[in-house]
Simulated assay, not measured.
Amino acid sequence: MSETIRVLLADYQAMVRGALASLLDLEPDIEVVAEVGRGDEVVAAAMEHSPDVCVLDIEMPGMDGIEATSAVRTRLPDCRVLIVTTFGRPGYLRRALAAGATGFVVKDTPARQLADAVRRVHSGLRVLDPALATSSLVEGDNQLTERERDVLRLALTGTTVADIAARLHLSQGTVRNYLSSGISKTGTTTRYEAARIAQERGWL
C-alpha cells in the first residue's frame, strides 16, 4: 500500500477550506490532518500534526501565506508547501518560491489536478501554474525597495502625502521621492496608479 500524504490546509474562508478538505479526502492516498483559518496558526498546527504538505492560501489574517511558508520551511524543513490561491499574481509567485514554496496554483484548478499537485510537491517536484510562470518571466522581479512598498501600500488607500509621512515617520519630501521612484518603476503617472499596478503584480 502506498504511503498516505498528510496535508495541513490553511485558508481564511471556512467554506473554501472545507471544500478543499472534502476534495482531497476523497483521494485514497491523501489525508487532511489539520485545518486552520489564520496564517499565524500554521506553524503551531504543523508542529502538532506533522504534515507532509501544507496547502496555504496567501490572503489570511495574522500572517500571510508567504510569511507562513517561510516560517514552516524554517521550523519544519522536510515539510513541503503548496500555495493555492485566488490571487494569481506573478509577483506573489516569485515571492512564494523565494520563501520556500514548492508549488503555486490557483483555486480554479480542477480537483484531480489539485490532488496531483499535492502528490508532485510531496515527491519534491515543483508545480507552477503555467500562465503565472509565463507572466512572471515577462514582468520580471519586484523592482521596488521595502520603503517604496511601504509608501505605495498607504498610497493605495488614498492617503495624503502628509499622512503617509506621519505614519512612516518620514519627511514629506522623502515620501514624494519614494512615490516618484515607484511611479517610474511601474511606468505609471500617478501614485494611485503606481500602487494599483504594483499590487496587481504582487509587488506589495
Rank of each mutant, 00 (worst) to 15 (best):
M1F: 09
S2W: 03
S2D: 11
E3S: 05
E3T: 09
T4V: 15
L9T: 00
Y12D: 13
Y12H: 11
Q13N: 13
V16F: 09
R17E: 00
G18E: 05
A19S: 01
A21H: 02
L26Q: 13
L26E: 15
I30D: 04
E31L: 06
E31Y: 01
V33R: 03
A34C: 01
V36E: 06
V36I: 05
G37Q: 07
R38T: 05
R38Y: 13
E41C: 10
E41F: 07
V42C: 09
V42I: 15
V43W: 15
V43T: 15
A45I: 09
E48D: 15
E48R: 12
H49I: 00
S50N: 07
S50I: 01
S50L: 09
D52E: 06
V53P: 07
C54E: 00
C54S: 08
L56N: 03
D57P: 09
P61W: 04
P61C: 01
G62K: 02
G65Y: 10
A68E: 13
A68H: 11
T69L: 11
T69K: 04
S70Q: 11
S70N: 01
R75T: 12
P77N: 00
P77E: 01
C79F: 02
L82F: 12
L82A: 06
I83S: 06
I83W: 07
V84R: 01
V84K: 00
T85M: 06
T85C: 14
F87D: 01
G88T: 08
R89S: 08
P90W: 05
G91S: 06
L93F: 06
L93W: 02
R95L: 02
T102H: 09
G103H: 09
G103D: 10
F104Q: 01
V105L: 15
V105I: 15
K107A: 07
Q113S: 11
L114W: 14
L114T: 08
D116F: 09
D116H: 10
D116L: 14
A117F: 14
A117S: 14
V118H: 07
V118F: 12
S123F: 05
G124V: 10
R126P: 09
V127S: 08
V127R: 06
L128Y: 10
L128M: 11
D129F: 03
P130H: 04
A131V: 15
T134D: 15
S136N: 04
L137R: 13
V138T: 12
V138S: 04
N142P: 12
Q143Y: 06
T145I: 05
E146D: 14
V151R: 02
V151W: 01
L152Q: 04
R153E: 14
T159I: 13
V161D: 14
A162Q: 09
D163G: 11
D163L: 08
A166E: 12
L168D: 01
L168N: 00
H169V: 02
L170R: 03
L170W: 01
L170D: 01
S171Y: 12
S171A: 10
T174G: 03
N177K: 03
L179W: 07
S181G: 03
G182L: 07
S184M: 03
K185M: 07
T189Y: 08
T189P: 03
T189I: 06
T190D: 11
T190S: 15
R191P: 15
Y192W: 10
Y192H: 13
E193T: 08
E193V: 07
A195M: 13
R196M: 12
R196K: 13
I197H: 13
Q199F: 11
L204A: 00
